[in-house]
Write a protein that binds this DNA or RNA. Structure first.
Length: 597
DNA sequence: TTAGGGTTAG
């Protein structure tokens, strides 16, 4: 594998673009073919059944699994078949008047059916009624009630029910504790979740199983602790709890989201080749999503082909992710083709998918198409939401049509769609990008001390916008104001401030701020390093470049195309030492590398 | 009869 960016000349750079384009082109061609062929896959795979390449014949599987409707599957009881809340309440009332009272199992079936319809408070209400009339509740019914609390983000009420378990001599099991653990994680109470998990193991309250480990791993991933999550994953294996597809998927997805795609693929390889665990559509969708985010299109097409070989059919979410990725690249034709296939497969695109398409049109400046689509959503049976309008709004600002953007906001109001915090941020950002400094500031001041302005993201937009409009003094004042407002700068705040300082030729002040980050408990991220490096290079501040590169290597960070290009230019003209190339080579992500001819 | 994994705006 050659390091493409080593040669700085114009031809090489052009060739990199051509190469990338041909990949993209190849991908689209292949994807187009593939999606059509996957639509033609045997109906078994469209039904969501997956086949190992070594499995017994397709026909026998089809026969035994997908079409055997009689006998094998237990019939659902009338309590599990409820279709509406009304129906459930009527049935419950009937049960209360039956003598002797139906068994707790029947009641539990009904509770579960109601919970599955996402009527959590009703399910909980029925549970309480059961207790009142003296149905002897057990761990199953208790677990459903606890789950209802947790799903409504009332995990504390779930713990209160746990206490009542002890009073009622109901023994909580691993499922009870896992539900509570999941509730804590859902409410972002990761420290309490960790404490509970450790306590359960210490007191041997229950033996964690693969679901519980997986819940804890999900929580750790959610809070950016991939390494600790992987540590727990290894520990679980050592303790004799065999990992399965779900646990692998959880970690793979988190690595993909953090752009650690190569680590994700190592894990994927381990899962499939060493452990013999079959990947499924979720595994592939996570990987595809990760690759799309990094624009590694050739590998996306490879994975889609692999799915086809394994007879794993892409599903609604896979398609949705592809539509979104195509739209973000401005490839709306391909996105439209995928949407057509979704319609053919009766996986009707939802509002989210269409929002991506609106975004794609806007990105290409095709505002009429975007507007027509927005207006046609209702006829597709979808109600345009604030999200759709926000997307359109963003597009109008992007092409500099501030007047029309204003009109759209008025239109939202007239449609009783209340602009939300995101609308506000889009307007601020749009006005900044269109250099409407006066308007931005008057809007910001008009909003004043309202909750909308107690938002670090608002400040990030304004600091960035002001410094890009050449108003670094205002940006600095806003940065100072943060602490007075009781807001804490986040990594993005530092990044935009550092970037602004560099833009105005103040690398020393930028460096000072950079050093403050770690001590403020906000360590610099990949972007901080890139921004500072670019600042140093543009302001001809070369002394610290190598040190920054080494630190990046230590933190496993990587270079982006523009920083890389700047570094190479400086080496080419002899302002930076060629010896740095080796270190730079280590920091180039795969998507910027050449592939063998 | 109970618990776990993948898409949405800066």
């Amino acid at each position: 594998m050659a390091f493409r960016a080593c040669s700085p000349n114009q031809n090489q750079r052009r060739s990199m673009m051509t190469h990338l384009n041909s990949h993209l082109h190849g991908f689209i061609k292949l994807t187009g073919n593939f999606i059509i062929t996957s639509f033609l896959l045997p109906s078994s795979s469209r039904l969501g059944l997956e086949f190992s390449p070594h499995s017994t014949s397709l026909a026998s599987l089809l026969h035994s699994t997908s079409f055997s409707n009689n006998g094998d599957r237990p019939l659902l009881s009338r309590y599990q078949k409820v279709t509406s809340l009304d129906h459930a309440f009527k049935l419950f009332d009937e049960m209360l008047h039956t003598r002797p009272l139906p068994s707790v199992v029947k009641f539990t079936q009904l509770l579960n059916a109601v919970a599955k319809m996402k009527h959590f408070s009703s399910s909980l209400h029925l549970f309480k009624q059961m207790c009142v009339v003296g149905v002897p509740v057990d761990a199953y019914s208790m677990n459903i009630a606890i789950r209802c609390c947790c799903q409504m983000s009332r995990t504390n009420d779930g713990f209160a029910l746990l206490a009542s378990c002890f009073r009622r001599a109901v023994v909580p099991d691993v499922c009870t504790f896992n539900t509570l653990l999941d509730g804590l994680i859902r409410e972002d109470r990761i420290l309490e979740a960790e404490r509970l998990f450790k306590k359960l193991i210490k007191h041997k309250s229950c033996e964690p199983n693969v679901v519980m480990y997986s819940t804890m791993i999900k929580g750790l991933c959610k809070f950016g602790n991939n390494d600790i999550a992987i540590g727990l994953f290894r520990l679980m294996d050592e303790r004799g709890c065999k990992p399965n597809t779900v646990v692998y998927n959880t970690i793979i997805d988190s690595l993909c989201k953090d752009k650690l795609i190569d680590d994700a693929f190592n894990l994927f390889k381990e899962m499939v080749s060493h452990k013999g665990i079959l990947p499924n559509v979720i595994t592939y969708t996570s990987l595809i999503h990760g690759l799309c985010n990094l624009c590694r299109w050739d590998e996306v097409s490879k994975l889609l082909k692999e799915m086809e070989d394994l007879r794993i059919s892409p599903n609604f979410q896979t398609f949705s992710i592809l539509v979104d990725a195509f739209c973000k690249e401005g490839r709306v034709d391909e996105a439209e083709a995928v949407i057509d296939i979704m319609v053919e497969r009766s996986e009707a695109p939802d509002i989210v998918t269409y929002n991506s398409l609106i975004d794609g049109y806007c990105l290409r400046g095709e505002m009429i198409k975007a507007r027509t689509l927005l207006d046609s959503l209702t006829s597709k049976g979808l109600i345009p939401d604030v999200f759709s309008y926000n997307t359109m709004l963003q597009g109008l600002f992007r092409v500099g049509r501030c007047g029309e953007a204003r009109k759209l906001v008025d239109e939202m109001r007239s449609q009783v769609l209340i602009p939300n915090a995101c609308t506000y941020r889009i307007i601020l950002d749009g006005l900044c990008n269109n250099h409407q400094v006066e308007d931005v500031l008057s809007l910001f001041h008009l909003v004043g001390d309202s909750k909308l302005n107690s938002d670090i993201q608002v400040y990030n937009i304004l600091i960035d916008g002001m410094s890009k409009c050449g108003k670094l003094d205002i940006a600095r004042d806003l940065f100072q104001d943060l602490t007075l407002k009781g807001l804490k700068p986040n990594v993005r705040t530092y990044n935009v401030m550092i970037s602004g300082l560099c833009r105005e030729g103040m690398p020393e002040e930028a460096k000072h701020l950079f050093h403050k980050m770690d001590e403020s408990g906000c360590p610099p991220d990949n972007v901080t390093y890139r921004v500072l490096l670019q600042g140093y290079l543009i302001t001809r501040h070369y002394n610290d470049v190598e040190m920054l590169l080494q630190e990046m290597d230590g933190r496993r960070y990587s270079l982006d195309a523009s920083t890389l290009s700047l570094l190479i230019d400086k080496i080419a003209v002899g302002l930076l030492d060629r010896s740095m190339l080796k270190l730079i080579g280590k920091l180039v992500p795969k998507e910027l590398m050449d592939t063998p001819a």
